[in-house]
Design a protein around this nucleic acid. Structure first.
Length: 603
RNA sequence: GCUCCCGUAGCUCAGGGGAUAGAGCAACGGUUUCCUAAACCGCAGGUCGUAGGUUCGAUUCCUACCGGGGGCGCCA
């Protein structure tokens, strides 16, 4: 899946060392542009290689941007920071794009862009299907491991964040040009399947079970397992049969459980609106046949050791309760494989078969140590070596009011489908409450878009590392940093174009005028979309894009209040403002799409 | 015990080696003959957990401590 761009503005410039650089004239983000310009200016003034210089360009409350680089550089060179900043300004490098360049305080360079420069950058972004977002400098094959429910078990609140965050990352990675392999590492193997299969047998065998709602199935099997030694013994034997893979009846029942669960997962994913489908399932069973070879490789590499009868890898730097070295157990004393075996085999598969260079694990924080050990073992094996690397995209818990894991009324973890349906129902209620002139079908569709959007946005808009408190009212509020607020801003823009009876695409060649402060502020926000996307991907933190989109929406509503678009007396600015509206709507629509959230045209 | 993460406004959260730490909600005060008021504007609110250290400069980096949570051998 090669990235191709038909438009000329983002041609790769070949010949640099390592990653290709892009023609800086082509960049829509003025901060990015100015950073390059300043880097060269600093290089000229100091004599240092440009590659070693960071001009530290940031948005500024005092101007459009500020460059703080002079302070650190001056210290490094033992020069006066103010003089250095003034020397850089004196090069005149910024004259063509800035209307004001001032050195302030100890050596800050405050920059104000010319309206013309900003307007041209806006026009460039508007002409770009990617709205100014640069493609990745190095195109990679990325495997994103997310969601990972268990066969024959219900999906619950614990799967919400991994599914929503993973899906957003997949969309963004693809958008900037990476080849992305979605992998749903479902739990479809292991000792629990002994009891699950045996339970199916008790129920009358294949065809007599219905897993469309796995609710009590797992619990029934579990209860029998705990209560009956006889059942327990049968379950153990069944595990052996399963692992042998050649008992037809066992395999048929297992396959049935897997297939029915896949149907159920598809229902959940479909309703939630994520990309995962059954083709993305690569369960633990897939890796099972490759595990003996993996163990042999560990053996050959001299990494396999024995400890208390188990086969282990001693991974340096990890200790147990007693302060003794902690092993990564890859084969239990019983000879059985466990999740370390599976995960290590999986790393090898992703690197060697899929040729992935970026392995993304969207998995909860509690598995951090386990994953670090697996990654380290893979490094020791010489598999997970540059350019291949693994990233644990960890996340905190979804909490209820009581600050504990979100529960259903029965006290168990809230079921994912209940949360999804609850979001849709609340979205519909919100629409009905504000009743517009929509018919039933439209209202239902809109309710789902708003409800699901709110649910997902709540997951994505705060730092994934922290726990967050689930709150229906807050996520569905039309004020604040919520999906409905962003969707509303988009709907208002669509309304303007309906009223004007103007085709959106027709204003995309317009170079807007930016006379009002709200127009400038909006322009600056819109041009930072590129940086927001890349920043989000660098840190695998979708909340960064959320924050940016919220800033865009706020800048737009301020503009909307202050700058009439269609009203009488504003004919002179009409085209220009329509162009700003169009680009705003596109940034909101695209940005939310990258998060897996739809936008309505009317609300 | 060892180890990882978190601690920012009443609440929910951003931010991050630099200039007066930002939003939203709630509260208070305004705005609608006008493109969707599901909105906007204003006002108020914080010794950035505590104490040291590095630095010209720390809320940001380092150390210790306090508070909360996770993990620590044959489940995943």
């Amino acid at each position: 899946m090669a990235l191709t761009h038909s438009h000329g503005v983002r041609e790769r410039v070949r010949g640099g060392a390592g990653a290709g650089r892009y023609d800086r004239e082509a960049m829509a983000d003025p901060l990015h542009t100015i950073a390059h310009t300043l880097r060269d200016a600093f290089a000229a003034v100091t004599g240092l290689p440009a590659a070693e210089i960071d001009p530290v360009v940031r948005p500024s409350p005092r101007a459009d941007a500020q460059a703080n680089g002079a302070l650190a550089l001056a210290k490094q060179l033992d020069r006066n920071p103010r003089e250095l900043a003034e020397a850089v300004v004196a090069t005149g490098a910024l004259a063509s794009v800035c209307s004001a360049v001032e050195v302030a305080g100890p050596g800050f360079i405050n920059l104000t862009f010319t309206a013309r420069f900003l307007a041209e950058q806006l026009a460039a972004a508007a002409a770009d299907p990617h709205l100014g977002v640069r493609p990745a400098e190095v195109v990679e094959t990325a495997v994103v491991d997310y969601s990972a429910p268990n066969v024959a078990k219900e999906m619950h609140v614990g799967h919400l964040r991994t599914t929503v965050i993973g899906d957003a990352l997949v969309r963004m990675l693809e958008f900037v040009g990476h080849t992305v392999v979605r992998e749903n590492h479902v739990g479809d193997w292991g000792t629990p399947f002994g009891m699950l299969i045996e339970h199916v047998v008790d129920l009358g065998g294949v065809g007599e079970t219905d897993l469309s709602d796995p609710g009590g199935f797992y619990k029934q099997a579990r209860a029998k397992f705990d209560a009956s030694d006889e059942f327990k013994a049968r379950a153990r034997e069944r595990v052996t049969l399963l692992q042998g893979r050649d008992d037809d009846s066992t395999m048929a029942i297992w396959q049935q459980l897997v297939d029915q669960s896949a149907d159920y997962f598809d229902i959940v994913y479909g309703r939630l609106g994520v990309l995962l489908r059954r083709n993305d399932i690569v369960g633990e069973s897939f890796y099972q046949p490759y595990m003996p070879a993996m163990l042999a490789r560990l053996e050959t590499a001299g990494l396999l050791a024995e400890s208390d009868g188990a086969k282990v890898v001693w991974v340096p730097g990890f200790t147990n309760r007693e302060g003794e070295p902690l092993p990564l157990i890859v084969q239990a004393r019983t000879g059985g494989f466990n999740y370390a075996t599976s995960d290590l085999t999986c790393v090898i598969d992703r690197v060697e078969r899929l040729h992935a260079t970026l392995l993304v694990y969207v998995v909860g924080t509690p598995q951090s140590q386990h994953l670090q050990m697996v990654f380290e073992a893979a490094r020791m094996l010489g598999v997970l070596v540059p350019p291949a690397r693994a990233v644990h995209v960890n996340f905190g818990n979804v909490l209820g009011d009581d600050r504990k894991m979100l529960k259903s009324r029965s006290g168990e973890p809230a079921m994912l489908l209940d949360l999804v349906d609850g979001a849709i129902a609340r979205g519909r209620a919100a629409v009905a409450e504000r009743n517009t002139d929509l018919d039933e079908v439209e209202r239902a569709e809109l309710g789902a878009v708003i409800g699901i959007g709110a649910l997902k946005y709540a997951e994505l808009s705060s730092d994934r590392i922290k726990d967050y408190v689930f709150d229906w009212d807050r996520m569905l509020a039309f004020d604040g940093n919520t999906a409905p607020y962003l969707q509303y801003a988009h709907a208002r823009i669509c309304s303007i174009f309906r009223r004007a009876d103007v085709d959106r695409a027709s204003v995309r060649a317009v170079v807007p005028t930016l006379d009002e402060p709200q127009e400038r502020a909006l322009a600056l926000q819109l041009l930072q979309f590129d940086a927001a996307v890349h920043d989000t991907l660098d840190k695998f933190s979708p909340h960064r894009l959320c924050t940016h989109l919220f800033d865009v929406a706020q800048a737009f509503t301020s503009f909307y209040e202050a700058c009439p678009v269609l009203k009488d007396g504003y004919e002179a600015t009409r085209e220009s403002r329509l162009a700003l509206c169009d680009l705003t709507a596109r940034v909101l629509q695209l940005g939310l799409a990258l998060l897996g959230i739809d936008v309505p045209e009317r609300m």
